[in-house]
């Protein structure tokens, strides 16, 4: 029995004496070193990715919210609220009283619109701005050359 067992044991030893291929050792070494390298990497090495992501998010939010037209600008404003202080417009507005009564020298400023101011203002203000003080004159020509009809429309007061 002993000799049989010695034979078995010797064969067991022989079987396990076969060399293990180097590739298996190399694989273990590579796995261990890779894990150790990953553990030793400083924490701030990877933080640039988070910083980049935060910067990109901030830029995106700025583009969305800052680039948008404010709601107040999208709704046409009441011209009186939009331009609460317009001393020149009030002065230029015709009152129907004489220049002497108004205490100012009569000028053509009241009848001549200031194109500079209107062209500079936004379209919404031009549409609903103060009424043009000049009377509207419509000339109607009839078949009879002796008859010409003038239609004069004037605005009085507000």
């Amino acid at each position: 029995m002993n000799s049989d067992f010695e034979e078995t044991l010797e064969f067991l030893r022989e079987a396990h004496r076969e060399p293990i291929p180097d590739a298996h050792f190399a694989a273990v070494r590579a796995r261990v070193l890779a894990e150790l390298s990953a553990e030793r990497r400083p924490w701030w090495r990877g933080i640039w990715a988070y910083g980049f992501a935060a910067a990109a998010l901030t830029a995106m939010l700025l583009a969305v919210f800052v680039g948008r037209t404010p709601r107040s600008a999208r709704v046409p404003l009441d011209p009186h609220l939009a331009q609460p202080h317009k001393p020149h417009a009030i002065l230029e507005r015709p009152t129907g009283a004489s220049a002497a009564d108004q205490g100012v020298r009569p000028t053509n400023a009241g009848t001549r619109p200031s194109h500079r101011r209107h062209t500079a203002a936004p379209a919404a203000y031009r549409v609903i701005g103060p009424p043009d003080p000049r009377p509207l004159v419509v000339k109607l020509i009839t078949d009879d050359p002796n008859v010409v009809i003038y239609w004069i429309a004037s605005i009085k007061g507000e």
Binding site: I20, F25, V28, R29, L33, R40
Partner: peptide
């Protein structure tokens, strides 16, 4: 002290012992 090259030498020295025992 943190020298990975030195640790690799240690592994090479003892890898047969560890891998063969684990395999058996």
């Amino acid at each position: 002290a943190g020298d990975l090259g030195a640790f690799e030498l240690l592994m090479r020295r003892h890898e047969r012992l560890v891998l063969a025992t684990a395999l058996r």
